[in-house]
Amino acid sequence: MTTSHPIISLQNVGKIFRTDEIETHALSEIQFDIKEGEFISIAGPSGCGKSTLLSILGLLDVPTVGSYRINGESTEDLDLDQRALLRCKSIGFVFQAFNLIGDLSVFENVELPLTYRNDLSREARKRKVETALEKVGMAHRQRHFRGQLSGGQQQRVAVARALVCEPTLLLADEPTGNLDSKNGEAVIQLLNELNEQGTTICMVTHDTRYADLADRVIQLFDGKMVDEQIPMHPMAANQ
């Protein structure tokens, strides 16, 4: 489902954390593109910089060096508000810990990103939320609260929330990390289906079973890209 058009472009990106005495190079010389409709995985051991990279991709953090472009536009000069708006419209997040807000119902959790856009009527928001919930098979639980859902269900709702703005890029940070294998597989299956429907996905995982399901796997080690491979897709191999 990929095209040749890169929507994400990282050029020599580095991230340095400084404290009084120590300078830590969390990322250095990261350079890759993500094309529209692509499903890539970022893999590597704990502490290799996966989450930092995802934060930069998600505009939650800024690189210390290098350039990061989304749809060809540089992100370096964006202020906090512009970054928030771009995040709201172009990027969806799925977290390991689901991160649903306990005080809000399923519907309200999914609706939340839309409320930050100020460009949709209540009716339009409702339609989009219902569509997103239907995509993840959670439309029937929209009045429920976090505490009434299983882990797998919570993650489905989190995916719906990430999708509701129809983002250019869906970022998933260890989406199966808090799930048992059955629910983990279901979530990966859901991400695959979304990718097949055209959603660009970037997933951080340390589970090679799931990493290898992507179109491309970027291996990180000590903050550097050490490998980039196109896995032998099991389904493709079978075909």
Binding site: L80, D81, A84, F93, F95, L112, P113, Y116, R161
Partner: peptide
């Protein structure tokens, strides 16, 4: 953090 991650401005 969640709200900011999904697009809430400061």
């Amino acid at each position: 953090g969640i709200r900011m991650a999904i697009g809430a401005r400061p």
